[in-house]
Amino acid sequence: MALQPSFQKSLVIAGGYDAPHTIEVFLDYVCPFSAKLSLTIDSVLRPLFAPGGKYAGKVKVIFRNQVQPWHASSTLVHEAGLAVSRVAPEDFWKFSLALFKAQGEYFDIPTSTLTPLQIREKLSKLVGDSIGQDKVAAFQDHLALKSTPNGGNAVTDDLKYTIKFSRQNGIHVSPTVLWDGLVASEISSSWGEKEWKEFLEKKVTV
């Protein structure tokens, strides 16, 4: 497990950064199966890894942005998530859940007639509705294009980091889940509390 220091307060979405076991979840905001898994993470895993939970201090969950470029909006929604991770790291997971729940608005057909600027405006509204209007201006500043014609924005380097990380580790499918650095192909987005508890019972060794 390796995580850029600037992401430690945002992309560790359950458990503490120092927990010895690591679950890494590669999720795409416009993937229905990723959305399904995100709800399970929130309802099943986060309570187990929180203070007082059975595996508190033993397991952490890291969110890995998995851009799927065959969906034209995927880059834009992941830029939004990364911008929130900079502006309000403590609200990254809250915003991510809101984006997963609203993902249908960012599917191929609903966004086919929108410009990137219009999509970012929709995402700005989601930021205001989900984590507070006081975060919107800074969020928009992070997504504003730089003065050079092809310079990207304030989170372009973060986006490159996440994409390069997936590529070098051969991650293609969303969602993909790693346990302690290895792909756990048995994990499914259809898993519920029973399956996760059985998995953790076998895997947690500390």
Rank of each mutant, 00 (worst) to 15 (best):
D134L: 11
W93K: 05
L3N: 07
V25M: 06
A14P: 07
I62V: 15
K54N: 10
K164I: 00
V67D: 05
G181S: 10
K146N: 13
G151R: 04
S73A: 15
L159E: 12
S10E: 10
V61K: 04
D134G: 13
I131W: 08
I13E: 04
Y106F: 15
S34Q: 12
I119T: 12
Q140V: 07
A83H: 12
K60F: 01
W93G: 03
F7L: 11
L200T: 11
P47W: 02
S6V: 12
V61W: 00
T176M: 03
A154N: 13
S96Q: 13
S130N: 02
G104I: 10
T113V: 11
Q133E: 14
V61T: 09
H21M: 07
A184R: 08
P69L: 01
G151F: 03
D158T: 03
K160G: 01
F139G: 14
G152K: 03
A35D: 07
P89S: 08
Y55S: 01
D108I: 11
V77M: 09
K202L: 08
H172D: 12
S74Q: 08
Y106A: 10
D42S: 14
L114A: 13
I62P: 06
R167Q: 15
S112P: 06
T75M: 04
A137N: 11
S96R: 13
H21T: 02
G170E: 08
A19V: 03
G152Q: 07
I62C: 06
A83Q: 14
V30W: 07
A56V: 00
Y161I: 00
Y55A: 02
P69Y: 08
S130H: 05
K146E: 07
Q68C: 00
Q4P: 03
T148W: 00
A56R: 00
K60L: 05
A88N: 09
A102D: 09
P116W: 01
I131D: 04
R46A: 06
